[in-house]
Design a protein around this nucleic acid. Structure first.
Length: 506
RNA sequence: GCUCUAUUAGCAUAGUGGUUUAGUGCAUCCGACUUUCUAUCGGAAGACAAGGGUUCGAUUCCCUUAUAGAGUACCA
């Protein structure tokens, strides 16, 4: 009985896709897949002034990188295409005309300048200018409602610029439904007569959106909260056309980490985290960082995005895409805005890092560090296995593991103070001997030899282990000392111990 | 201004008209890992915006206030 679920993600190609847009796309995707439906990408490029070349490709690449590809869209499975509104231009006029013919819309000839003047005028008087029943017949507006039929025709045939406005009803209370927010009532008297068709021959978002959603057989419109105020108009438009409206769900806004205002493009650079999925080079040359380039795994991005406004109601926080599809539910989406937490996104990334194959991480590590070009990949893989648990990004690896590849060139001052005592040189020399005497050079043998020596001579672990670590690493950091010795080998271990002994100056 | 929306600890959130001493995660602090640590493990501290109702009883329902956000374009 129920139709197949079809949802759409309808971004405007005005620049890189904001992370909030990705979240909207993700929720659409999850909802569609959960119900075995289709996920449609439609490009809303009705504003020719704001068009940015390359933005559409960026959107497609972003969705693909996140692993949430669309089923239908530009150049892909075009069943009900085209999927760019600029290519559907010819479709919209007839619908605007239809509304005019049945009295639901009208021509307006006011210029932008005239309207601005009205708005300013009202502002001075402390009132709000609304282009609706309240003002449309008072004589100061020029439209087909106040003009005679002849005058209107004359203006049209004279080629005067006009727009088509929706005639919003008077004194009605609209009852709207939103899956997330429940019932919403609106007094139609506060609605203005929105422009449906612009003087440049293109429809506005409002008209195009309704016509396309209808033609593309969209069953659920899942979009950002900023559209909530337009919901009444959209419902009215469906009614005016005599079409069944889809169901609506308005997603909560994504707020800045400071909590004030919605997350904007500039917040990222200011606070040191990306707001875009992929790096973006603007036509003017400025570069915005992306999650991908910053070293985030797509799984982590999807996971934290899913939790921006939604939660499963259980204590599970780690969700694969498949899990999300299984558990996602619009009813469980929050109404309140979701504050973006950069630390939590790192936490997710750390988690997904642990699940990556050491070999894959090692390959990436090698590519990003020239110094590793000639190092055996198997060795790098072993190193990665030892240090990845304390890394969030692959870019952390070098900092955490350089001593596996190169000997320390100097010793951290604070660490030296802490580790080096009067008898340190003697102790280290003895340790070097022990290392040298360990023929079968394994972690286990090193441990039993050195630890055994410490306990049998009653020296104290700190006095031995700390300077030993300092010798090997150059600081009091890194994984288990015995692992390090084993990895760099007997000769290198002894070399480094002797280097420290020498530097102490005994 | 007007319209709409929200408000649980530093932050994100769970949850409910009465055994809830309000659960979880991030961050913080403290311990442990026979001694690195920004990792891991264990523990601690920390919240129902305010005021009115409704009710035997409200964090949970209603109203008001405060605060915050969104929209208010020939942008989407």
């Amino acid at each position: 009985m129920s139709k197949k679920v079809r949802v759409r993600f309808a971004p405007s190609p005005t620049g890189p896709l904001h992370i909030g847009g990705v979240r909207t796309a993700l929720f659409n995707y999850l909802f569609a897949k959960k119900h075995g439906g289709d996920f449609v990408l439609r490009i809303e490029d009705t504003d020719q002034n704001r068009y940015v070349a390359g933005a559409e490709d960026y959107i497609v690449e972003s969705l693909n990188w996140c692993g949430i590809p669309f089923d239908e869209g530009p150049e892909k499975n075009e069943k009900l295409g085209p999927y760019r509104q600029s290519e559907r231009k010819h479709l919209y006029k007839q619908y605007a005309d239809q509304l005019i013919a049945n009295g639901k819309a009208y021509y307006a000839f006011d210029t932008s300048e005239q309207l601005d003047a009205h708005r300013k005028d009202h502002e001075i008087k402390g009132k709000t200018f609304i282009y609706n029943w309240h003002n449309r017949k008072k004589g100061r507006l020029v439209n087909s409602l106040v003009l005679s039929e002849e005058e209107t025709k004359a203006k049209l045939s004279a080629g005067e610029h006009y727009v088509v406005r929706f005639k919003s009803p008077q004194d009605e209370t609209l009852h709207l439904k939103d899956i997330i927010r429940g019932d919403i009532s609106i007094d139609t008297n506060v609605l203005d007569d929105k422009i449906l068709f612009k003087s440049d021959g293109m429809p506005t978002y409002h008209l195009a959106n309704i016509v396309d959603d209808h033609l593309m057989e969209i069953t659920h419109v899942i979009r950002g909260e900023e559209w909530l105020p337009s919901l009444a108009l959209h419902q009215l438009l469906y009614d005016a056309f005599g079409w069944d409206a889809p169901e609506f769900a308005h997603l909560p806004l994504i707020l800045k980490p400071t909590g004030k205002g919605k997350l904007s493009k500039r917040d990222g650079d200011k606070m040191g985290f990306p707001v875009f999925p992929l790096e973006y080079k603007a036509p003017d040359g400025t570069i915005s960082r992306g999650y991908k380039e910053d070293g985030y795994f797509p799984e982590a991005v999807v996971n934290f995005l899913a939790f921006l406004g939604w939660n499963p109601g259980t204590e599970q926080e780690i969700f694969s895409l498949e899990d999300l599809i299984k558990h996602f539910d619009l009813e469980r989406v929050n109404k309140a805005g979701a504050r973006f937490d950069p630390d939590k996104t790192k936490w997710f990334n750390h988690h997904y890092m642990q699940q990556q194959l050491d070999l894959d991480l090692a390959k990436e590590f090698q590519v990003k560090n020239i110094l590793l070009a000639d190092v055996d990949i198997n060795y790098i893989t072993l190193v990665v296995g030892l240090i990845k648990e304390r890394a969030t990004f692959v870019s952390d690896f070098w900092e955490l593991s350089h001593f596996f590849f190169v000997a320390p060139i100097d010793y951290d001052e604070k660490a030296s103070k802490k580790a080096i005592k009067e008898d340190t040189a003697d102790i280290l020399s003895k340790v070097a001997e022990l290392v040298n005497a360990t023929d079968d050079f394994t972690v286990e043998n090193l441990q039993t030899n050195i630890k055994g020596w410490i306990t049998s001579n009653d020296i104290g672990f700190g006095k031995v282990m700390m300077p030993l670590r300092l010798a090997l690493v150059g600081a009091l950091q890194g994984p288990d000392v015995f692992d390090i010795m084993f990895m760099i080998g007997k000769r290198e271990t002894i070399k480094r111990i002797e280097a420290l002994v020498k530097s102490i100056g005994h």
